[in-house]
Structures are given as structure tokens and as C-alpha cells.
């Protein structure tokens, strides 16, 4: 049972009571702005909303951001242990930087953001998929993920380490730390299922797992 607080005024009063580092976030709905100058521990520093499409200024801890993503951005959650997503791009000849999607993945109780987007990399149209961990850098490194895309007898697989959402979506994209497919190849992959050049249908499958701690 989740109580809903819709009155923003009430919310902002409660906000003060629930502020870092002593808040409990179990009963809060999305709380906007969490300016806190008294944070000593960088791990407790609030995260920015990882929804990169619009300029969303919401910050908060992971639980709060999850609620915010679900309620305000309508982002869906999938099982991260094995997933398969289909991306359809109706007009792939016209690529805009704004063409992108976000899905949430759950693995071992942790949450991951899976991005898929179309963009131009030095004037070449590309698609890119990558994952970011909803948590700090240190814990992010204990996970691995793989993404696979293919068709027409070919397949391309990326295996990587999710970056923390402390790194902005743009930072990760620009460092090319993910699965990158040129549009040419993407269209070739999608000609598998009776599609025409006018429509792109890419199936991206993958999984997230926790790496076994190395024992020497």
C-alpha cells in the first residue's frame, strides 16, 4: 500500500523533516529539489535524475529517483537477468539527437538504466546502447552486463561494466563506453524480418550480473 501525497505544499514542509542524512524515503512521493549543503559523505550526495531527454532537475536518492522515473517519466522496469527489447525507428533516415529511450532493469535488488539512442558521431549516424548503474561508482564496478544485436547471420556483442549515474548520460555516450552500431549495419540487421529500409527494427538482448568477488 503506497500512500500518495499530492499536495505540494505539504510535501515541501515534510521535505525539511526528511532531509539528508536522516530521512526515510519509504513514504515519500517525488520530492523536487533537494539542496543540501551539509553533506559530508559523498556517497550520500543526491543523484541527478538519469532521464536525460528533457532537462529534468530532480535530484534525490535512488529510491526517490525510481519513483520519480516511474511516476513522472513513465519509465518501465524489466528483469535485468535476461532481457530482450525491440526498438523500432520509423524514420531512420532522419536522425535527431533527441531520439532515445530509457528502460529500467532490476538485478540483485539493484537498478540499472538501459539507454538506447540515435545520434551522430562525427557526422556518421549511429545507434548506441549502454547501461548505467543507479548507485555509486564503486558498487557499479562489481557488476557486468552484455548487450547483443544481430540479424542476417551476423551478431555484435558488447560486454562492459555499467557506469554509475554519477557520470552523466552524455559523458558515457561521448566516451563510447557501450554498444555502438552504425546505421548502415543497423538497417542490415533489421532487414531480417521483411522490413523495408524505411523502418528500423532492432532487437537488443542482454543481461546484467554481479561479478564473483576475486578470491586469491
Amino acid at each position: 500500500m503506497e500512500p500518495r501525497i499530492n499536495d505540494l505544499q505539504v510535501e515541501s514542509r515534510v521535505h525539511e523533516l526528511l532531509d539528508f542524512p536522516v530521512h526515510t524515503n519509504q513514504i515519500s512521493s517525488a520530492i523536487y529539489e533537494c539542496p543540501n549543503d551539509h553533506i559530508e559523505n559523498p556517497k550520500k550526495k543526491p543523484y541527478n535524475c538519469p532521464h536525460s531527454g528533457a532537462k529534468c532537475d530532480v535530484t534525490g536518492d535512488i529510491q526517490r529517483l525510481l519513483l520519480h522515473l516511474r511516476n513522472d517519466h513513465n519509465v518501465e522496469m524489466s528483469d535485468g537477468r535476461s532481457f530482450s527489447h525491440r526498438y523500432v525507428h520509423h524514420d531512420p533516415k532522419h536522425l535527431h539527437h533527441a531520439t532515445w529511450m530509457l528502460t529500467l532493469l532490476d538485478c540483485c535488488g539493484r537498478k540499472f538504466c538501459l539507454y538506447f539512442e540515435a545520434f551522430h558521431l562525427r557526422k556518421t549516424p549511429m545507434y548506441m546502447a549502454f547501461m548505467q548503474f543507479m548507485g555509486d561508482e564503486e558498487e557499479a564496478m562489481s557488476f557486468s552486463y552484455s548487450l547483443q544485436v544481430g540479424g542476417n547471420g551476423r551478431k555484435l556483442t558488447w560486454q562492459g561494466v555499467p557506469r554509475s549515474i554519477r557520470d552523466s548520460h552524455k559523458t558515457v555516450r561521448d566516451s563510447q563506453d557501450g554498444l555502438i552500431i552504425t546505421r548502415k549495419l543497423a538497417l542490415f540487421f533489421s532487414t531480417d524480418n521483411n522490413t523495408t529500409d524505411k523502418e528500423l527494427k532492432l532487437k537488443v538482448s542482454g543481461r546484467v550480473w554481479r561479478e564473483q568477488p576475486v578470491s586469491i
Partner: peptide
């Protein structure tokens, strides 16, 4: 091809 915990694999004809 890979390094630093990442790898990229291509399978083709």
C-alpha cells in the same frame, strides 16, 4: 577485441 573489463565481439559470415 577488449580490455579494461570491456569486450566487443563480432560474429559474421
Amino acid at each position: 577485441v577488449g580490455g579494461s573489463g570491456r569486450k566487443l565481439t563480432w560474429e559474421g559470415t
